[in-house]
């Protein structure tokens, strides 16, 4: 195995593009090293992006926030402006693994691992986050929900890597929240999860919303019907019931060691409702 730690995005793209055999990007490594260790993959090339300065920063920009692909999740929690603007996303990032894992793992890696249960992804999708992708043919920007296309598979082409995650500017009277169900209190992979991001008008009526569900389909789902269920409401019980029903209706889960179809479908509704309530409160709704 060859290990490279380039200092520029360009150099990283070049290494990946020229690689013969299997090449992997190393950000936090909390998935990559496990897969290497268990023999699931045997990389010929690993490109460590943590020495690329532009990928190692969280920046407040004119249009929101930019989060470098190599920024560990723990650093997100230390950025006060980010926590204030996107508390749900930061909470999601700081639910991945343990404190130790959060010291290394990144939301970009979480996204590129393309697991349906990735904690930060529903929160990013709900937030309307976009991924900045650099490749041999230049830069492209796509919504986060278009990165994973199947379990373990992304839409990234050979030689491409994600450089940044862009978060939109936070509108007033907005809030987001992410909840996951796990059997223990920590250290588990989400059995089912929900991210909700919404904006209210002056009267507390939901004017826009995005609802994303994790671990209920091959990829994280952005559920328009669930968003529609609460738009125009003050999140009254009837709207919440509709939200729950829409969330359950969108589920296409599997039975596996972590949960059953029945359980995931039911609990998706529970979490969507609970997350919506938290987001609503954060947006200043009463």
């Amino acid at each position: 195995m060859q290990y490279e730690a380039p200092e520029t995005t360009k150099a990283a793209v070049s290494l990946l593009a020229k690689a013969k055999g299997s090449a992997y990007v190393l950000a936090g490594g909390s998935d990559l090293l496990v897969r290497m260790r268990t023999g699931f993959i045997e990389p010929d090339l690993v490109v460590d992006i943590k020495r690329i300065k532009s990928m190692s920063e969280v920046k407040k920009t004119a249009t929101g926030f930019s989060i470098g692909a190599a920024v560990p999740c723990a650093a997100l929690g230390e950025n006060k402006a980010l926590v204030k603007a996107w508390p749900g996303l930061v909470e999601a990032a700081n639910l991945i693994g343990s404190k130790q894992v959060q010291g290394r793992c990144t939301i970009t890696g979480n996204m590129c691992n393309a697991g349906p249960a990735a904690d930060s992804v529903p929160a990013m999708v709900a937030a309307g986050a976009r991924a900045v992708i650099q490749g041999p043919k230049g830069k492209r920007v796509i919504p986060v929900e278009q990165v994973a296309i199947a379990p373990g598979k992304t839409s990234l082409k050979r030689g491409e890597l994600v450089e940044l995650i862009l978060l939109p500017e936070r509108k007033p009277k907005s809030g987001d929240a992410y909840l996951r169900f796990i059997p223990r209190s920590e250290m588990d992979i989400a059995v089912v999860s929900a991210g909700v991001n919404l904006t209210l008008d002056a009267k507390g009526v939901v004017t826009s919303a995005r609802v994303a569900l994790g671990a209920v389909a091959p990829t994280v789902l952005l559920v328009d019907a669930a968003a529609k269920a609460i738009i125009g409401s003050k999140l009254d019980d009837a709207a919440l019931e509709k939200l729950g029903a829409a969330a359950s209706a969108a589920c296409r889960p599997i039975d596996d060691k972590r949960g059953t179809i029945e359980f995931r479908t039911k609990v998706a509704a529970v979490l969507a409702k609970r997350a919506a309530k938290i987001a609503y409160k954060r947006a200043g709704g009463k």
């Binding site: 059997p183 223990r184 920590e186 250290m187």
Partner: peptide, 8 residues
């Protein structure tokens, strides 16, 4: 230890 869940 990820999916054999001993108490944390």
């Amino acid at each position: 230890f990820l999916d054999y869940r001993i108490p944390v």
